[in-house]
Design a protein around this nucleic acid. Sequence first.
DNA 1: CCAGCATATGCCCTTGCAGTTATATAGCTG
DNA 2: CAGCTATATAACTGCAAGGGCATATGCTGG
Lengths: 100, 100
Amino acid sequence: MPEPFSVLAEPARRRILDLLLKRPRLVGELTDALGISQPGTSKHLRVLREAGLVTVRRDGQRRWYELRAEPLTELDAWLTPYRWMWADRFDALERQLESE
Amino acid sequence: MPEPFSVLAEPARRRILDLLLKRPRLVGELTDALGISQPGTSKHLRVLREAGLVTVRRDGQRRWYELRAEPLTELDAWLTPYRWMWADRFDALERQLESE
DNA sequence: CCAGCATATGCCCTTGCAGTTATATAGCTG
DNA sequence: CAGCTATATAACTGCAAGGGCATATGCTGG
């Protein structure tokens, strides 16, 4: 099972998850929305499936892909210790930009 | 400025951030901790710097790298609409049960 | 000013991955 | 069954990225 981090590095895959947020989708719908080829979509879906981020429901010759958000908890957990930091720390960035 | 998502896809870079969580570090320290070559470390640090995730403070021939967590807000924001699916799972279940 | 240390950059090699087209598989319909 | 539709897999290609070594840069101590 690959890491959610690397799986989500692909914009297309984040896009898919965003689409599944509203409701399950067919491969064809996703293909249209992404603007890539159908095999391309199927490959992304495979990666998402192997990461446990989507599940498939067969419906005749169609496949309904639906979201399974649970692996995202790993991301959320990693993020936790950083979360307190982003209040008002623009000063550091300014220093950096000025030094270049 | 690259996306934090792809920057964090690299385990070594997440590792660096985790180390910087406690205190600023020198390149040498990070190199030892990561078990890769010094140039390798410097390259990861460059990526992190360009993504705004670290800042450098010069101190003679040394460089103190310190964490700048603000770009992680993008990750956090993306995660937000998914969070209810696991965190508020029981709340949702309760609401559903009550409405029946 | 020279030797040595800390860090950055250039170059090369290799691997992995996203994207494509072509084809396979399986269900549906007439 | 024939042919169409929906999806998956295979084979190939191009490119980016990570890793290493060698070298440049810049500071420091003697």
